[in-house]
Design a protein around this nucleic acid. Structure first.
Lengths: 342, 342
DNA sequence: TTGAAAGCGTTACCAT
DNA sequence: ATGGTAACGCTTTCAA
């Protein structure tokens, strides 16, 4: 049987309350008593019972992290930093996956998990159906990503602005027929929406006529999903000058197909991504992308959640994490002049 | 204030015990009572208090998953499946990261986390210093990966055999000067040890003389770490016929450097990996690798852990997950004849 | 089938 | 500075 605080108290010749005081540091404890108690703890290799503690003070010390799919590099890198920062702040992290399931997002937002986790970090995919829209009482939650709502705290990268910048960059490299992969389509996906908006904004500024056939939708934002879409797209469409993929994962899939079909990047077509996942730098060719500091994002998120847990009635806030474009070989090196007459 | 079981009982006109019975299904409850109670629960949107439950029955319903680095594709994919299978079995997953830190591995193995988690899945990197070696009382734990010990349950892929097979395959493609990247070196790293062993085994069978300069150590098993090592290696060594990287991540780094230096894969040099991470298929060229079923690994692991949690005194077991080699373009296509005279 | 009471291990309140 | 007592919300005896 594992020793309890009572056992420690008995051995140290004090009351259970004193043991608790030593542990929590709430009330003052004399140096002698403290030493005695700590000695006893060590001898019994005492570990406080987490459940009892949680029950008593109403906090579990755990936060939930809900991501669409942990196995994607972007989510994995984010989770890595969230876990790290949370630990620094004394919190454990319980992982949840929402898949592509709006219902699951909703469940998590409902109070159901209360008392397992003290707060939730949620990276939703769908907006309309998402629980964020519903006027239910929220648990302490911070939303991650391009969700446009004002009901909950949020940390995001300005996808409109970043997509606009990337499009302008590709244009500056001489490209006119700039395609986007992952474009807005039927189902409302926040990330697709904002980035498509930024893309269109840039085209407008550049006076490049809008060509719907260059907005390529992609249901599954993975290398495989992207590869399938690109392969069939290229069977029926002319090769664009540049392909701006809304995630690096999609860009990697696109690079794979382009290479398999014998196209050279960036000579025949430029490719850019978004997210700056670790593998992008080691793609072949290395990938131009929108980069932002994942660690900073994690820190801001955890800090915001801790503030929210402390006061559930604060006004919702939005934190914007900065970005910068990193240009690598996938758009560089074969700078073609702007085609005359277009 | 959140409603308790007592509140539900009052509203339904029954005792708290009956509410508990409805919830757990331990004792029989008449259909009418059950309906009444469930109605009351719904009206109050009652959610059982997890801490109280854990305190009472001594189980938290959480298992810990400790990985070296969640942001690597291999770990991320594994975590994805573990989380998924654990949920199916009714468990939540708390993530821990051990970094490259043997001490952290030890801490986790100590009883410290008891009562937060019911059991632990640990993917250790170091063997000698790892807590597994110490004769301390273990929490319910399943070790993941190529750790050679008999003190705890374990799920692994036979790295010796797989590395041997891959080496034989490369030889069958006509390669003689087969290098390995990630070779055993100074610090004892279990995965490096077993795979190097399999490699040497194959060379022995093939009567290929052992050339230490073809065993390339690599401290950081990431694309970046591998790229750095390969770059400096190639400055002072002749290009091998084939490079067998002990992980796909390292292979991706190697491909990147080889391509940057103007070498063609597989024409100038064949490259193979290990793990079959998702991006390997979309690498340029697609990567030959050792594949194994991650989902199956997760299932075996969770099942083993559940058994261990049920009976802490069972004899430790080892489960071996099968593998198969998937040959893709990085070793295929430019099949050179065995060089005469070697 | 249901109810009453006890107790899981901890901490808060109130004394001393 | 320290100790006693009660309470957190649940489940498990034991009785009815």
């Amino acid at each position: 049987m594992r020793p309890t605080g009572k056992d420690v108290a008995r051995r140290a010749g004090v009351s259970p309350k004193t043991v608790s005081n030593v542990l929590t540091g709430t009330a003052g404890v004399s140096a002698r008593t403290r030493t005695k108690v700590e000695q006893a703890m060590k001898e019994l290799s005492y570990v406080p019972n987490h459940s009892a503690r949680s029950l008593r003070n109403g906090r579990s010390g755990l936060i939930g992290l809900a991501l669409p799919d942990l196995s994607t590099p972007y989510s994995a890198e984010l989770a890595h930093h969230i876990v790290d920062v949370a630990h620094e702040r004394g919190y454990g992290v319980q992982i949840e996956e929402t898949g592509q399931d709006p219902l699951r997002e909703f469940e998590l937002m409902s109070q159901a998990r209360t008392n397992i986790i003290d707060g939730l970090i949620l990276n939703p995919i769908f907006l309309e159906k998402s629980a964020v829209q519903v006027g239910v009482a929220l648990p302490p939650v911070v939303l991650l990503g391009e969700v446009s709502q004002q009901l909950a705290d949020r940390v995001w990268v300005d996808g409109v602005s970043a997509a606009r910048d990337m499009t302008l960059l590709l244009a500056a490299r001489g490209h006119r027929r700039i395609a986007v992969l992952g474009a807005e389509h039927q189902r409302y996906v926040a990330t697709a929406h904002t980035r498509t908006e930024g893309y269109r904004l840039a085209l407008g500024e550049l006076n490049i006529p809008h060509d719907p056939s260059l907005e390529i939708p992609c249901d599954v934002w993975s290398p495989r999903g992207s590869a399938e879409v690109m392969r069939s797209y290229l069977e029926t469409h002319e090769l664009p000058d540049a392909i701006f993929c809304f995630t690096d994962s999609m860009a990697i899939g696109a690079l794979s197909v382009l290479s398999a079909l014998g196209y050279r990047v960036p000579d025949d077509v430029a490719v850019a991504g978004f997210d700056d996942i670790a593998d992008g730098e080691f793609a072949n060719p290395p990938l131009t992308t929108v980069s932002f500091n994942r660690r900073e994002m994690a820190e801001r998120t955890i800090e915001m959640l801790i503030r929210r847990m402390a006061d559930r009635h604060r006004e919702p806030e939005t934190t914007t994490v900065g970005y910068r474009i990193i240009e690598r070989a996938s758009t560089l090196g074969a700078q073609r002049p702007a085609r005359p007459g277009q």
